[in-house]
């Protein structure tokens, strides 16, 4: 299954949720600011990248974890994706959209606005990180619920599902980075990585 966390700008709450899901961030305590800033997509995505679905890694159940930005149009994202899936006969239970916006607090919105919209990263990033720390356990709870929901599928089924997936175009590693401080993510090597390479404009 593909689990796609989404929020307004795909820079803070969805990145945090995906990182928690993959074990890149702890579930038992609030991480330090630096731990957030080490996440590859935290406070990074710009408006001209919204809509792009980023691959973050594969969880312990074999589910592929993605994140995306959909501005204030969550239904558009889900409808377009579902419509395309319908065209190509992709079953509905092959993907799951998780809206993380409901866990976002005002501090996150304010800091995110300053950093992403106005570009004052030096001022906005600490504020949005503070907000993320304040909302952290709410996001952890959401991720826990999602994991409980999707983890019911047996790992055997997940492996079979992944084996049926054709290889991706690019050869990027199955996750962005190794877990901090030697923590175990419970991840297993990807089988048939369904990853893709995002090419930045002009990059």
């Amino acid at each position: 299954m593909k689990i796609i966390y989404h929020c307004y700008g795909g820079a803070h709450s969805s990145v945090t949720a995906a990182a928690i899901h993959l074990g890149l961030l702890p579930v038992d305590h609030v991480p330090e600011k630096q731990e957030f800033w080490q996440l590859p997509l935290f406070d990074r995505q710009d408006a001209d990248e919204h809509g792009h679905i980023y691959f973050m890694g594969i969880d312990e159940f074999g589910h592929e974890i993605y994140l995306t930005a959909r501005r204030s149009r969550p239904l558009v994202l889900e409808k377009v994706f579902a419509g395309l899936a319908g065209i190509f006969d992709i079953p509905q239970d092959d993907y799951l959209f998780v809206n993380v916006m409901e866990k976002v607090n005002l501090t996150m919105k304010f800091g995110g606005f300053i950093s992403r919209r106005w570009g004052f990263i030096r001022f906005g990033r600490p504020i949005v990180t503070m907000g993320t720390q304040a909302a952290y356990f709410r996001v952890v709870e959401l991720v826990r619920k999602i994991k409980d929901q999707v983890g019911k599928d047996s790992e055997k089924d997940s492996v079979l599902q992944r084996q049926q997936t054709a290889s991706g175009r690019a050869g990027r590693s199955h996750t962005y980075r190794t877990p901090a401080r030697g923590e175990s993510t419970g991840q297993k090597p990807a089988v048939g990585p369904a990853v893709f390479e995002y090419k930045r404009r002009g990059g």
Partner: peptide, 21 residues
């Protein structure tokens, strides 16, 4: 889709990449 042309293009492009279409 009202006013989100770029976003839809990127979404479709991502969908194609994810499912190797």
């Amino acid at each position: 889709v009202k006013g989100e042309r770029g976003m839809v293009h990127r979404l479709v492009e991502s969908f194609q990449s994810i499912y190797n279409i």
